[in-house]
Amino acid sequence: MRVGSPSRTGVALAALSAACFVSVTSENLPVALLPQLAEGFAVSEPAVGLLMTGYALVVAVSVVPLVALTVRWDRRTAALVTVAAVAVSNLLLAVAPGYAVAVLARLVAAAGHGVFWSVVAAMAARLLGPERGGRATAVVFAGNSLAFLLGLPLSSWLGATIGWRPTVLTVAAAAALSAVVIRLTVDPMPAGPVAGTRGALNRSLWPVNLATLIVVTGHFAAFTYITAIIADFAHLTGPATSALLFAHGVAGLLGLVLIGRGVDGHPRATALLVTAGLAACMIVLLVTGSGVVAGAAVVLWALPAAGIGVVLQAAVLRVATHPDLASAVYIVAFQIGIAAGAGVGGAALGHGALPVAVAVAAVCGLLATAVVNRSRAFRDRR
């Protein structure tokens, strides 16, 4: 596909970023609407939590075979089908008469989730050109960051104000609208030559997937319970917690901009900034123990955290012979890291040992730093 005019390319990238925003907001709706869904379906809150766990498991299990199945599809078509699946999923959830139908609705979106995230970064790279793949990834992944900063709080507020069913319908409408905009602004993108599974699993990618598994496990061991960390380390609760989370989100957007600008020219330096930065913030939390410094560490934590997906996805695109299949394997590593990290952090919290979760995050950051430093996937192009 040709790189179009700057204005058209910008609109196309914005459309893909908006689809990322909707995808992440939809994925995390059970978090934003936890009490409303539990009451609406007459189930416990842990049962609603299973809508998240099951989603992640379906993505991890299905992404590789589904990406292999759709590998010859036009990339725009693949994106449209998966975004449409988000719309259908939320429409089904909004009218679900009971919990079983809600589970089915979540499975619809989960089946397309991995395919969408395996193609969206590669599509952005084709729009801007291969030499700016990292920046393109940062642009579309801004939708991810905005989903946590705005999408989830807005969904929670709407759920409490107008009810959870109209809120879910709103997300369905947003997904449908983003699909229409992608169809109007992104030109057809024929699939590239198909290389077989081995092409997705060349040696250069194994360290990237290992670093992904390690750093994502560490990050989510702490991030899943960030409100508990704020309460225990920074001694903030109520509105002060919301204010600190907002500052965390703003810092994340800043980190995304900075890392997006540097990832193409200095891939190793930016990757090391992400992994070592995570470790440094966790160490500061452990050393300071409490107070203003701990609060500052929570905010600064967002700077490297925002770049995790960018530097790792850019590394995949940099060395993969078939980006879509390689991205699918990377997504599996990412999803396993999320589940493992949340499990480790939950166990620590359940035993009253939250600092252990923070220590795990610090150790994982250091281990990932060592892997990144030795991997050829993060070498400068020159």
Rank of each mutant, 00 (worst) to 15 (best):
R261S: 11
T161C: 10
A294D: 10
R126D: 08
G307F: 12
L312F: 01
L146G: 13
G343E: 08
L325T: 01
P239V: 13
T369V: 13
Y225H: 10
C20Q: 01
R165M: 09
S156E: 14
N28F: 15
P239M: 11
G40C: 01
V293F: 10
A110E: 13
A38I: 09
A12N: 01
L300F: 09
S155V: 13
L158F: 13
A125R: 09
A353Y: 01
P188Y: 09
R135A: 11
V48W: 03
A326K: 05
L33I: 08
Q335M: 03
P207A: 06
R198T: 00
V63M: 04
L244V: 14
L366T: 02
P65C: 00
L107T: 08
G291A: 06
I283D: 06
A15Q: 00
R183T: 08
A191C: 12
L51V: 07
V24A: 00
G218P: 07
L253M: 14
L80I: 13
G151H: 04
R72F: 09
A370P: 06
L69C: 00
V292M: 12
V63N: 05
L69E: 07
L349H: 04
L285K: 12
V310Y: 06
L236K: 14
G365N: 09
E27A: 04
T288N: 13
G262Q: 04
S290K: 14
T53K: 08
T224G: 02
R135Q: 15
V216K: 05
T137R: 05
A247F: 04
F220M: 13
G365Y: 01
A305T: 07
L80K: 10
A333E: 01
T53N: 00
G277N: 14
C364S: 14
V168T: 14
L278R: 09
G199N: 06
R8E: 02
P130I: 12
L325S: 13
A87I: 05
S7K: 05
L366C: 03
R75M: 06
